[in-house]
């Protein structure tokens, strides 16, 4: 999904009165599924658009976004560590670390 398509969708969702978080990868070190600048929308009802790489990293961001939307708390950074071993349950093993800025708008 291009940034333009994502931004148009975000604008539409907000005009419709929905609360939506925009998550942006602002730092990526080591081997990560998406580069800096990758973006994703996370809605209060659980719907998402775009991807910051899927898997565990995305799950961490999703719960942070839902927490923000539920509590009315302001934007902030979420750190994701993808350096767990391949044997660990549900671990992401890409080998890198990311920082993701989550903005409820």
């Amino acid at each position: 999904m291009t940034d333009l398509a994502l931004a148009r969708r975000l604008l539409q969702l907000r005009r419709d009165g929905l609360r939506v978080c925009l998550a942006t990868v602002v730092e990526a070190a080591g081997s990560t599924p998406r580069d800096v600048g990758a973006k994703m929308l996370l809605c209060g009802d659980g719907a998402t658009f775009g991807t910051i790489g899927g898997g565990c990293g995305e799950a961490v961001v999703r719960s942070a976004a839902l927490r923000m939307l539920a509590s009315g708390q302001g934007p902030g950074l979420v750190a994701v560590d993808l350096t767990q071993g391949p044997g660990e349950r549900d671990g992401d093993v890409c080998g890198g670390r990311m920082r993701i800025f989550v903005d409820p708008g």
């Binding site: 931004a7 975000l10 602002v26 934007p75 902030g76 950074l77 800025f101």
Partner: peptide
């Protein structure tokens, strides 16, 4: 911001967005 961002993305110019993240 969002409306302006969309309008710029629909154009043909390069631009830079600064966001306070902390």
């Amino acid at each position: 911001f969002l409306e302006r961002f969309v309008a710029l993305l629909e154009g043909d110019d390069v631009f830079c967005v600064a966001t306070v993240i902390r």
